[in-house]
Computed example of a mutant assay.
Amino acid sequence: MTVRWDIFCTVVDNFGDIGVTWRLARQLVAEHRCAVRLWVDDLRAFERLCPAIDITLSEQWQEGVQVRHWPKDWLDTEAAEVVIAAFACQLPSAYMDAMAEREVTPLWMNLDYLSAEDWVIGCHGLPSVKYKHVQKYFFFPGFQAGTGGLLREEGLLERRRQFQQDDVAQRIFLQGLGVDRAADTRLISLFAYENTGLASWFDTMAAGPEAFHVLVPEGRVLADVRRWLGDEGVEVGAVHRRGALTVQVLPFIRQDQYDQLLWCCDFNAVRGEDSFVRAQWAARPMLWHIYQQEEDVHLEKLEAFLRLYTEGLCGPAEKAISGLWRAWNAGQDMTGHWKSVCEQRQELAEHAQAWCLEQASRADLATALVKFYRNWI
């Protein structure tokens, strides 16, 4: 029998939460034949990722997933066999009662934020709180054995490999976004939060000997781009050239298109969680802008990932990429760090591919969740 899954998502940071849960819901349906209801409290944010969404509907089907608007005034709903509270969101009290009233107790999991910190392995899969007799469990995505792994659809790496080897396919895709890639120009994607370090980075590229073309999908970093351009227009499609640097604003694009954008680029600057993972599957050098937390807790997570990610790099390459990440996340001057990264380009590119293959050797997150359920029953 088809197992029913309910996934609850509260949209906190624009697109990261819904981006992860939307990918997960689709994969559970397509690859594991689960019946999935995705409960979302903000359909407008969801619409940016899935333009087919009708934000006026309380219930609709998208790519095999039953999408439900999560209303403030909850209606009585039968609980599913598997319940996922994404990123520790609080379930409606009436739904929790419905879980407790089921004849067969459901599996209730908190799908937590991605982290490379050592303590995650010890907490993954452990019981959490109880509601009446319904036990909740921790489920942590991660980069090491003993965690839940990363979201990765079946065949993703092979599709990426074929695309990256097909110059014609890349050119057609970029032209569809209005991008004309000049010969001997290195492409960079930039999806980030506001960052005071951007001006020094752009200044360095503009004054350097190499040609760079930075593609900036609509997002929060555009305010900094506008300031660097001297309040010139940064509307979608705008192309600005200053020295060796070309800056182009792209429209907000669907997840599958964003994957292809990452695959086209030589270097990817990403933010949050969803784009962070997709950049790793792109197997290209990258720069992560981690979501800022109170008391700089996020910096501990940044350092934990860097310790894992830089294993095996030579000293200069490790120093270059770590310095760049730390400067970017502190909003500091990027000049020297970017020059060092460019000098270590070859090793960093080879390392990105090796890291991608290492992560792909483990079970993906959706498969791990399904296996956890089967073991639980």
Rank of each mutant, 00 (worst) to 15 (best):
194 E>V: 07
195 N>F: 14
195 N>H: 09
196 T>R: 12
197 G>Q: 08
198 L>E: 06
199 A>G: 03
199 A>T: 08
199 A>W: 01
200 S>C: 10
200 S>I: 13
200 S>L: 14
201 W>G: 02
202 F>H: 02
202 F>L: 15
206 A>M: 04
207 A>L: 13
208 G>N: 06
209 P>E: 13
210 E>S: 13
213 H>Y: 09
215 L>G: 02
215 L>H: 04
217 P>M: 04
219 G>D: 05
219 G>F: 03
220 R>Q: 10
221 V>K: 01
222 L>D: 09
225 V>Y: 02
228 W>I: 09
229 L>M: 13
230 G>K: 12
231 D>A: 13
233 G>H: 06
234 V>T: 15
234 V>S: 06
237 G>A: 11
237 G>P: 04
237 G>I: 03
237 G>H: 04
238 A>D: 02
239 V>K: 14
240 H>Q: 14
240 H>N: 09
243 G>R: 08
245 L>H: 05
246 T>D: 09
246 T>A: 11
247 V>T: 14
248 Q>S: 00
249 V>I: 15
249 V>W: 00
250 L>S: 05
250 L>T: 06
250 L>P: 03
252 F>R: 06
252 F>P: 02
252 F>H: 10
253 I>Q: 12
254 R>D: 11
254 R>S: 11
255 Q>G: 09
257 Q>Y: 08
259 D>C: 01
261 L>D: 04
261 L>N: 04
262 L>F: 08
263 W>F: 10
263 W>M: 11
264 C>I: 01
264 C>E: 10
265 C>S: 15
266 D>N: 13
266 D>Q: 14
267 F>R: 07
268 N>S: 14
268 N>V: 14
268 N>K: 10
270 V>Y: 06
270 V>F: 11
